[in-house]
Design a protein around this nucleic acid. Structure first.
Length: 475
DNA sequence: TGAAATGTTGGGGCG
DNA sequence: ACGCCCCAACATTTC
């Protein structure tokens, strides 16, 4: 840098931890200037990452560092207020240009906008890029100029409005500033839990990083997507869904890469791409409703008579509700940092409706335990189940926790995997152990109330209570 | 991207 | 042969 006398360009990486199809990086690399790639652990985040997501972040940064170094570059890690850190880097290097990819949380937009205004006023070139959505929230509008509040018309309009360009290639080489810049040691950020080390167990089922994301997409499109419309509802089928959510949430893969890879697939990929649509819709909702994770989208829910029991909520968190399908789901979440979509709906419905718990309690738990911790999808989906959201499921749609199990885990394999104390129970009783004859329970080594809990609430009673609460809130 | 209650229909057993 | 009842099976309504 000093020799060529060219001012370097900064690429500020956030939740876009990839080299391919990364517009900010691509444009910066094309400038021919030396590159400064930086990730900042921001001191003034609007919301701290959940524990599981920190584990993912650690491994994702580690993978990204390796692939950047392979191309001759350096990923700089620093901690502090983003504005201060960028100032430091500019002082240290004389960088006169900054690129980043957009993010959509209210607090993040405030930070980005303030930095952009400040740097521009000081004569730097600053550009933000579209990278993490197919459609910017402001690109899809209703005829009356607002944002869509119903998914189906939103997605129809979105698909009609965009032309998806081909993916951007990863830069061949990364010509970073010559002198190595000071960087934190990733280990010092202590993103990984130590005692106990529950993070390693989560990583047995997941591999963070751009390469793993792409290979997961490829193997999913190479077969399972063909049966996606049906198999996506089967938690007992390991390959029924793509499991791309954490990769997407950290930007290891872009929705455009997914779109381009899936749309020309020989199979019908519409159902699969519709899920990308829900993600887009959720980000639009978050953009126009920055408090989506903390405020009812429908204010009518503000006076809902929640009546939750702390002990029962804790039983839900730990997978001890006495409803095997719910418990399997909550244990899958706790152990692996991921949960099957069908199960997410059932577990969320159970917390909100059977336990009459404010959806925000569940939102917070999933934020903390899901590897992905996606600010838009998590908030929008919890509100969807609660009935308080845009285009939400009607409140009175209350899942039956055992018939859902019987429908979507008919042999009980999913339950047996995560609730091993029920493993010997015949499938006839696996979703309703309380209906099993005494001898059958005995033979399966189960003593209800001891080796596995009685249901924490009676389904019929809980359902009626939930409906009564809903009725009361409307009066 | 429900479930339960209620309503309707039609076949079969039976007096 | 007929009416009556029962009750799946399916459809509709309600929450």
């Amino acid at each position: 840098m000093a020799e060529t006398n060219i001012n370097p360009v900064i690429i500020w990486l956030r939740r876009d931890l990839r080299l391919a199809d990364n517009p900010a990086l691509h444009v910066a690399a094309q400038s021919g200037k030396p590159l400064i790639l930086i990730y900042i652990d921001e001191a003034n985040k609007g919301r701290e990452l959940g524990g599981a997501a920190e584990v993912w972040l650690h491994h994702s940064l580690s993978a990204l560092t390796a692939s950047i170094e392979e191309k001759g570059g350096q990923l700089i890690l620093r901690r502090g207020k983003a504005a201060d850190i960028l100032d430091d880097i500019i002082d240290e290097t004389g960088a006169d240009e900054v690129h980043w990819n957009r993010r959509y949380e209210g607090w993040a937009r405030d930070i980005d906008e303030a930095i952009k205004t400040d740097l521009k006023s000081r004569g730097l070139k600053v550009e933000s890029h579209k990278a993490n959505l197919l459609t910017e929230p402001w690109e899809v509008e209703t005829k009356t100029g607002g944002f869509y509040k119903v998914f189906t018309p939103f997605w129809r309009a979105a698909k009609a409005s965009f032309t998806v360009a081909t993916d951007l290639p990863a830069p061949e080489t990364l010509d970073c500033a010559e002198a190595k810049l000071a960087s934190d040691d990733l280990a010092d950020w202590t993103l990984l839990p130590r005692s106990p080390d529950w993070g390693s167990k989560m990583m047995q089922a997941h591999t963070p990083g751009e390469a793993a994301a792409m290979s997961r997409l490829k193997s999913f499109l190479d077969g399972p997507v063909e049966d996606y419309a049906v198999q996506r509802d089967r938690p007992d089928d390991e390959t029924g869904t793509s499991k791309l959510s954490p990769h997407l949430a950290f930007g290891e893969i872009s929705p455009r890469q997914i779109w381009n890879a899936a749309k020309d697939n020989d199979y019908t990929s519409d159902k699969f791409l519709t899920e990308i649509g829900w993600r887009e819709f959720s980000y639009t909702l978050l953009f126009y409703n920055p408090d989506l994770a903390s405020q009812n989208y429908k204010p009518a829910f503000d006076n809902f008579p929640w009546d939750s029991d702390a002990k029962k909520v804790e039983a839900w968190r730990r997978g001890q509700t006495g409803y095997p399908f719910v418990d399997a789901g909550m244990r899958e979440l706790w152990q692996t940092g991921w949960q099957h979509n069908r199960v997410r709906m059932v577990c969320a419905s159970f917390l909100i409706k059977h336990l009459l718990t404010d959806w925000r309690v569940g939102e917070a738990w999933y934020w903390d335990t899901l590897l992905e911790a996606d600010p838009a999808s998590n908030a929008a989906s919890w509100q969807w189940v609660a009935g308080s959201g845009a285009d939400a499921s009607p409140y009175f749609r209350i899942f039956n926790p055992f018939t859902q199990g019987e429908k979507f885990d008919p042999n009980g394999d999913y339950v047996r995997k995560y609730v091993p104390e029920l493993a010997k129970l015949p499938k006839k009783y696996i979703h309703q152990p309380w209906t099993a004859p005494g001898l059958t329970l005995l033979e399966a080594g189960i003593k209800l109330g001891e080796t596995y809990p009685h249901p924490v609430v009676d389904h019929k009673t809980a359902r009626e209570r939930a409906l009564a609460g809903y009725k009361a809130s409307r009066e």
